[in-house]
Design a protein around this nucleic acid. Sequence first.
DNA 1: CGCTTTAATGATCGATCGATGAACAAGATC
DNA 2: GATCTTGTTCATCGATCGATCATTAAAGCG
Lengths: 210, 210
Amino acid sequence: MGGTEPAEARPEIDRRRLPPEERQQQIVDEAVRFFAEVGLDGKTRELARRLGVTQSLIFKYFETKQDLIEAVYGRVYLERISPDWPTLICDRSRPIGERMSIFYRDYGSRIFDHDWMRIFMFSGLAGAELNKRYLTHLSKTLLEPLLKEIRVAASSPSEPTLEDLWSLHGGIVYLGIRQHIYRMPTPEDPQHEIDRAIGRFLGSFDVEGP
Amino acid sequence: MGGTEPAEARPEIDRRRLPPEERQQQIVDEAVRFFAEVGLDGKTRELARRLGVTQSLIFKYFETKQDLIEAVYGRVYLERISPDWPTLICDRSRPIGERMSIFYRDYGSRIFDHDWMRIFMFSGLAGAELNKRYLTHLSKTLLEPLLKEIRVAASSPSEPTLEDLWSLHGGIVYLGIRQHIYRMPTPEDPQHEIDRAIGRFLGSFDVEGP
DNA sequence: CGCTTTAATGATCGATCGATGAACAAGATC
DNA sequence: GATCTTGTTCATCGATCGATCATTAAAGCG
């Protein structure tokens, strides 16, 4: 076998002298994967090794390591919440069960992500303010409107509370925690489990599920 | 005011030359609090400072930092699962709703703990094998028997699955995550929220809740 | 007290950390 | 191809890490 030239077989990026924006983006991309794997205490020399560049180059694009971490936060938090969700949640032309199913399917497709899940947990443990802001924003713009819609749809005398919704939410998020933080086996079809949880939740308030 | 001697006012331990077992235990105790706060990358010098001893003393009792971390694991995982729970779960003289309420009340009182919650998360992110063993043990000895009991009590044609139970469990655990990992405000009376979640869960299988 | 034991300290090692600045070289322009 | 710009490397700094070991001094005992 053989005959092909083994030279330059590395599929890695060995090109040098990239445009600054491109290089900066490349560093952040790799930093997301790197910090997600080893934590925010990961060493810049190891990150540079993965990038195939020298450690000092990183500090040409980010003054301090903390600046790089902030850039990682910005990248990873971006596009994690869709602007379409408030509209979807309040679309009363569709049954609430369907709305919740679609919402949590989209939500799950965005947050059941290895890098996001772990960096969110690392930054939460580190006391980053972004976590609190994210969760507060989630509660105000998504859970509270969702609660209102469920109450409107509910004919039951007992109404759900925001904490009830947090409980449902936690049960769903826990799927991602089991998978990406604890690395435990999880269901092949999480949407099925999510729909069952939504169904149980709505059913207990006499609302039809998805 | 005054008149009292300010000398030796330090309530801290400044006594030297403790019995080895006592000193070792003291180090582990403080290490639990310390690592829970700053993570497993916490520095031994900072830990020694909190203990009021020199850094080198720590290495008289633990050959390596990893040994100390293992001791912290052992301490913090100890007594976290009660041997009484399997008996309680299978005690059919009591309604299943009551059994679940009592179980999760006891369970919550043990795991809704700042140090446990954070060290469990830190070690999970670090890939410690103890997390997987803990969760597997939890599933085998508690959730699976609980599932069996619910199925026995359920008269509904649709039976709960183990994943359904994980969803309930996750919703409950998420209370502790919100409190101790994300440091967000949580309900004053978590037991009330837990009982509501149990009630919704059992209700969806036509079983009376707590 | 004088002696022994050993818990605890103080000094320090080699490795590694984040960060800096001079030297180098790839690529564009003429 | 000579020149200039600037992305990248190389060498290195001071600080700090986990870990080691000789020294010190507190407690137990005759």
